[in-house]
Design a protein around this nucleic acid. Structure first.
Lengths: 156, 156
DNA sequence: ATTACTGCAAAATATTTGCACGTTG
DNA sequence: CAACGTGCAAATATTTTGCAGTAAT
């Protein structure tokens, strides 16, 4: 799997007349092993843990857009504060997120109907979809119980 | 309209045992006059232009979450870099965004079917929806024309 | 009187950039 | 050898916070 990803990555690198680089491919390898949502910092930790001690923050920041363009990872949960999170999308099932505004819990779900609808909308406006950021925000069941105490009070 | 918004805002303020404040209400008034997407800086400029010269950046940053909780504005286009953008949602039609990854153009669209589907999904996971961030990213027609020249090349 | 609100400046954070050197094609 | 990649540190930019004084309840 990582081999196919690396191959695809190299295609993009070549297509742009860039050069191969060990550190950058180590970033690809490290990213592809990650399971859930990860930050640049998480990725850096994995790199260091796997012996690539040279890997520097700036290098990771510079490499990530390439991984995104190669369709290996995708920025997600962009509405969360702090730092940008990513997740692997290469050869994984597409899913969207439901985020609880109370406890921050993130539920992943899949909906073929939603996917179809998105495509239809994109088509209507003559867009060629490439990233779908569908983030629904709301309060989960357990967070709603404590609501009377004067937390956020108005709902759509 | 602004009166209804202010009334709603005051409800939230009261509900939290906070105090009324002129500057904060000026922020509400200024925000409600804005048409499209705006940043904190935009809002600040409007405030200054309308004579509220005291209004300070920190005050605006502190006020915005209240406007959000009151359902007057909503953070949007969270995947764009730079600074957080907002838009007025109070008594306006709901819409979502289609963002071109090439030129940054943003198209707004409405889809009842999408809305219904979102609600259905939220219900399935027992979430009470409160903000819907549906941001579709792709390349618009005119940006796709220049594609062969080696820009982003892979699509989903 | 008590507690919140404000402006200011400083702090904290995340990401980007310039530069000198190493590596690749 | 020409161009790209890297580490490092410094720079940017945005948002947050502590503080001292002001305003609201």
């Amino acid at each position: 799997m990582i081999d196919r990803a690396l191959e695809r990555f190299r295609q993009v690198v070549r297509a742009r007349a860039l050069k191969a680089s060990k550190v950058r491919e180590a970033v690809v390898r490290a990213a592809l092993t990650l399971e859930g949502h990860f930050s640049v910092d998480d990725l850096l930790r994995v790199l260091h843990a796997s012996g690539v001690h040279e890997a520097h923050m700036a290098t990771v920041y510079r490499a990530l857009p390439l991984l995104v363009d190669a369709g290996l990872i995708q920025a997600t949960l962009t509405a969360q504060g702090e730092s940008q999170l990513y997740e692997v999308v290469f050869e994984r099932e597409h899913h969207d997120h439901l985020v609880c505004t109370g406890c921050g819990r993130v539920v992943e779900y899949q909906s073929q109907a939603l996917l179809a609808l998105e495509r239809e909308i994109a088509e209507r406006y003559e867009f060629e979809l490439d990233v779908r950021t569908i983030e629904l925000h709301g309060r989960c069941k357990s967070c709603r119980r404590g609501e009377a105490r004067g937390g956020r009070s108005l709902h759509v």
